[in-house]
């Protein structure tokens, strides 16, 4: 099984007529994802390489039965795009766009939680999600992810960083280890989906036997995850935290990757995870090796 998305997930692309939206909608479709449409109010009735364009999300959902959307809208339009998706009946919203203002994120996170508690938002500023062999929504290169093998020991991955996620997928693939789902929750201060959301889903997924988690400096999401792991995760885990040598007070590329007031350091996060029984690697390679070892011993 996979978490959040699978072969039945039907996806529309908000911003499908833009260069990025078109490019990745095509790649996702070529991967085998059910790409059923896109939106652009000015180009309704046309198509992008055979992908029908609708005026609104509500119309696209009505016509196609889409359950997920993928947002490739510029940052200024993300707030209304997220709300349009939720109002239009989408259950799973993936927002790839980076550079969304923190106040917008805080607003639509709380708005969704209140008015659309069943809607899940992934991102913003994330690479998306892939359930290898079933569904790929976003910008992950599908061929570096190995499909979960029925009956074998498979891994679930959750990460705040894009390229480090690819690295993890690649290393597991090289070792012949399958992945049920790989979720990129993104590097912003208010991610729609948290580590805990993903850990809970992986814990409940019978096909996921071990979990790999990639965090980074800033905030306290990893510490909160550690508490959750202690209380509720029985599956073995490995982890890596990026930014062990990052200076305080500087945003390291991601808007949320900042150590401020002595809080959010990699050391504190690693300590919390070790305390929760997670095998923590000093670098991504080591975390991958630890996961290989875990899977071999399962």
């Amino acid at each position: 099984m996979a978490i959040f998305v699978d072969e039945n997930t039907k996806v529309i692309y908000q911003g499908v007529t833009g260069s990025q939206g078109k490019y990745y909608a095509n790649l996702n479709r070529a991967y085998g994802t059910q790409v059923v449409g896109g939106t652009n109010p000015k180009k309704a009735g046309t198509d992008v390489d055979g992908i029908p364009v609708f005026a609104s999300v509500a119309e696209a959902v009505k016509e196609t039965g889409a359950t997920a959307s993928c947002i490739f809208i510029p940052a200024a339009g993300v707030r209304s795009a997220v709300m349009e998706a939720a109002e239009g009946g989408i259950e799973f919203i993936v927002c790839i766009t980076e550079g969304v203002p923190a106040h917008d994120e805080a607003w639509f996170f709380n708005k969704l939680q209140r008015d659309y508690p069943d809607v899940r938002l992934l991102g913003p500023n994330c690479p998306g999600i892939i359930s290898p062999g079933k569904c790929n929504i976003g910008i992950t290169a599908g061929h570096i992810a190995k499909e979960a093998v029925p009956g074998a020991r498979n891994v679930g991955i959750v990460s705040r960083s894009g390229t480090l996620t690819y690295q993890a997928l690649y290393e597991l693939q090289a070792q012949g280890i399958g992945v049920t789902t790989c979720v990129g929750i993104g590097g912003d201060p208010v991610p729609g989906t948290s580590f805990i959301d993903c850990l809970a889903a992986f814990q409940a997924d019978p096909e996921t036997h071990a979990i790999m988690m990639i965090g980074e400096i800033g905030g306290s999401a990893e510490e909160e995850a550690a508490e959750f792991i202690t209380a509720s995760v029985t599956k073995p885990m490995s982890a890596y935290i990026a930014g062990q040598t990052a200076p305080a007070g500087k945003k390291m590329g991601h808007a949320g990757a900042i150590v401020s007031g002595g809080k959010g350091t990699a050391a504190a996060k690693m300590e919390a995870l070790v305390g929760a029984g997670v095998k923590v690697g000093a670098n991504p390679t080591e975390a991958g090796e630890l996961m290989v070892e875990i899977v071999k011993n399962l």
Partner: peptide, 26 residues
């Protein structure tokens, strides 16, 4: 490095190899 996470972890491994980074660049 390509990617913020990879760039951060590059600083980490340079440090683990006994060196120090002059910058972070994604």
């Amino acid at each position: 490095a390509n990617g913020a996470g990879l760039a951060m972890s590059t600083l980490d491994v340079v440090n683990q190899a006994g060196g120090t980074a002059a910058n972070f660049l994604d």
